[in-house]
Design a protein around this nucleic acid. Structure first.
Lengths: 158, 158
DNA sequence: ATAATTGCAAAGGATTTGCACGAGT
DNA sequence: ACTCGTGCAAATCCTTTGCAATTAT
């Protein structure tokens, strides 16, 4: 089990991600195009929690002709294949992060500067299962976000 | 401290809510109109987690001429005054619930039928404070949602 | 009277979709 | 060849806003 603090995807992770994507696309009869390769690799290598707009900006440095629709469609493909996860932090835009292959984590969001940190807590996870069970629910997933003021913002202006 | 299971607002709650709203409006120099009274009372008496559309539907049974904008604006007023809270459960619409005056709770959402239940767990709350502190955050609020299959959906189709 | 509120319709922002053209298999 | 993918623009969905008419104070 990796720790949530390991933010950067290693080269091995990247290979693993690409392999999974290829497998998924083969199985569905989908095609490997230059745009898809560009978008997916950019996404896999980028830091987490990007919006479509942010991702497109990076992508266009390589190929300025790529359109919004392609990025939306490619992220949908990644989400469907389980390699990306869509997140909403309340600012109206969808953000995506690479699905970590062997861990689960949640988020701390600074309400002043927007910085996003990750955390992971097995006790909370265990408690969630118990809560769900007590309500007769079979848990599939959850969302757990803590909003507050991060250390540097707190230092800077009380 | 009331329990999250007490879903229906009592008559006393209703009076308290109205009193707070009146106080807020007086202080801001806002006016009491027939539409506002209708929207706010409908909202206060309705079960939690309504979308604007759902609320408007109920409101229009009393007065079919009320428009979307009025409901949006009134809910904004309620949110600003602290009497309503806006929620997003991932289906693209904003939902609102009456701000409970003396409790905090989170949500369990059935991914099949959309049913929403509430839960409350002090241990989890305490843990959140510790997690935030460990990351140097001062916590303001959080979001904790459990998505799964509820008992009746599970019974009905596995 | 004065200023706030309403309802409509138009504008906004994010995301999706239709379609003709282009590219992968 | 055949089908899927792309890029553009138009369409859609939810929400906000401008404005003239209406209403509360």
């Amino acid at each position: 089990m990796r720790r949530a603090a390991d933010k950067v995807n290693t080269e091995t992770d990247l290979d693993e991600l690409k392999a999974r994507l290829t497998a998924y696309m083969d199985q569905k009869g989908l095609r490997s195009t230059a745009q898809r390769r560009l978008v997916t690799e950019t996404f896999f290598e980028a830091p987490g929690h990007l919006s479509i707009e942010e991702l497109l900006e990076v992508v266009r440095k390589q190929d300025p002709k790529v359109g919004y629709a392609t990025v939306y469609r490619t992220l949908k493909l990644l989400t469907d294949s389980g390699l990306a996860q869509e997140r909403h932090f309340g600012d109206g835009v969808s953000r995506y992060e690479v699905a970590h292959l062997d861990e689960h984590h949640d988020h701390l969001i600074c309400v002043r500067c927007g910085r996003i940190e990750e955390f992971e807590n097995d006790e909370v996870e265990a408690m969630q299962d118990r809560i769900a069970a007590a309500h007769g629910f079979v848990l599939e997933r959850h969302r757990h976000e803590l909003y507050g003021v991060c250390h540097s913002c707190h230092r800077d202006r009380g």
